[in-house]
């Protein structure tokens, strides 16, 4: 299966998201074709400050994908996913805005028509692949890796159509498919990590992360699994300051890689702040 791929700005410097996604997609045969010459989606910073440019940035990415004849754009970052999807939905309802966006894009001979579908890699794996297609690659028993499945916010919200917006279960199901242990009662699965506010409002955001980490620990998790680079960084890095037992924060792709028998270096796990030891 072929998909357009939008890695987003933080993909390559993240704690092994790139390495593990590349490795896992190769095994699963989900071919991720990087969008040629993509730019930053703009995210919250642009939504918060400007009207037209906030739409032009994601529209350029989608227009590039259209130009490459890609039908779907797979994201690995919740913020990118949400930005692209939000732009697409708004542009489909506002012709005046669409026109302005296309006038801007015309400067680069690009055109946005709204044909691409916006996806997240987690949801691609769970919805497009059959469980047995994933299971057949599992060759390491990771049932002792008890996972607190952490979804963060912007994948399910505000849409709520992929999964329940308050208590999703998609990642829980994937963990079960690859044979990991999974907390059935992780209450902080959609709690906020503080996102970009963590730098300016460190103290308050630390207490948010404390709730996430302590709930995972209390319920008996051995790792927290994330699906977004900002979530991963915040929950991982916060632990430098939290007075709690350390718990590694893995990307779901790293977790899959482990089950598929890849080693930690191949999965970029040496880049985690809280080291993975099991």
């Amino acid at each position: 299966m072929k998909y357009g791929f939008f890695p987003g700005c933080t993909y390559s410097s993240s704690a092994g998201y790139k390495e593990s996604t590349e490795a896992v997609s190769k095994i699963l045969g989900t071919e991720l074709i990087e969008i040629e010459d993509w730019n930053c989606c703009g995210a919250t910073s642009y939504w918060s400050t400007q009207d037209i440019p906030a739409y032009v940035l994601p529209a350029r990415i989608m227009a590039l994908a259209e130009k490459q004849n890609l039908k779907q754009i797979v994201n690995v970052c919740n913020a990118c996913y949400s930005t692209l999807r939000k732009a697409k939905e708004k542009l489909s309802k506002d012709n005046e805005l669409l026109e302005k966006v296309n006038i801007s894009l015309a400067e680069e001979k690009l055109k946005y028509s709204g044909k691409v579908t916006i996806r997240h890699y987690l949801e691609v794996i769970v919805n497009d692949l059959k469980p047995e297609d994933i299971k057949k690659h599992v060759n390491v028993d990771i049932k002792d890796v008890i996972v607190a499945p952490y979804y963060g916010c912007q994948l399910n919200r505000p849409w709520g159509d992929l999964d329940n917006p308050h208590y999703p279960t998609m990642l829980d199901r994937l963990c079960k498919i690859i044979g990991a242990g999974v907390l059935s009662d992780f209450s902080a699965k959609t709690s906020c990590c503080g996102a970009a506010s963590i730098m300016p409002h460190n103290k308050e955001c630390l207490s948010l992360n404390q709730r996430i980490v302590s709930d995972a620990l209390f319920k008996g998790a051995k790792v927290i699994s994330t699906i977004c680079p900002l979530c991963q960084l915040n929950v991982d890095a916060s632990q430098l300051k939290l007075n709690l037992t350390k718990i590694p924060v893995l990307y779901f792709t790293q977790l899959m890689g482990l089950a598929f028998g890849l080693n930690e270096r191949e999965l970029g796990m040496d880049k985690l702040i809280v080291p993975f030891k099991i």
Binding site: S13, S14, N39, I52, P53, S104, E107, E108, K271
Partner: peptide, 29 residues
Amino acid sequence: KKNRLEILIHPIKNLKGFKKVMTKALELE
């Protein structure tokens, strides 16, 4: 230490075109 500080940004290839797009967008804004 983990080689995760990316000081350098690799700009996008068609930076000139991109800037023209963004200038237009700001103009419309």
